[in-house]
Amino acid sequence: MSTMLKIDDIHVYYGAIHAIKGVSFEVGEGEIVALIGANGAGKSTILKTVSGLMHPRSGSISFMDEQIAHMDAYKLLRHGLAHVPEGRRIFLQMTVQENLEMGAYIRKDVSKADLDMVFNYFPRLKERRKQIAGTLSGGEQQMLAMSRALMSHPKLMMLDEPSMGLAPILVDQIFDIIKQLHKDGTTILLVEQNASKALEIADRAYVLETGNITLSGTGVELARSDEVRKAYLGG
């Protein structure tokens, strides 16, 4: 297994606030890696820093052996790194179809094969393709956000809280699709507050607390660990 994403001792600040205090971790090709931790631990900040929406003050990030720590966000998708941000951030005033077109923006044209590929994962979106995205339900919006990211054929897909605000049955559906995407060859970096769900599908996981990684291990190990059970799995 070769390393796809390597984060080495990054420090990230919001103005004067030191949000990420020297975090290092790796994602290997073909893995599902989960970052778990409480609200405000810095999970989303790490993803934003990897995708170039924020930049670390020090430390390095390499993706497929290329230094990306100071690359502009819009260039990263071309390298095969897609980010499904927290809160979905779909274009609410555009149609489902237009959102998908934006997902394929870097390839200039939208092929029927790509649309079929995402509709295969998310059949419900097919019926709704002419609908304005803002009128979709929360679950459908999450599906659209993931589909939009898929349109670029990413090598690594970073998902920020895909289960947020969804009914349990939908959470199960979304996680099934993540597993399917992984099986079909996409490497996944998953940020979740729903630790039990995340650890269930993760090959490896890291626990983040106030800007530091405090624990790491395989998904199974962490799910069994006393500390994690107490803090994140409800005893």
Partner: peptide, 24 residues
């Protein structure tokens, strides 16, 4: 047009537009 839609995307959500590979 592709450019025009990119403009609407930037107008709606600048960060999300960047994540689509749009040069803001």
């Amino acid at each position: 047009t592709r450019m025009g839609k990119a403009m609407r995307a930037v107008s709606e959500d600048r960060d999300a537009a960047q994540l689509m590979g749009i040069n803001v």
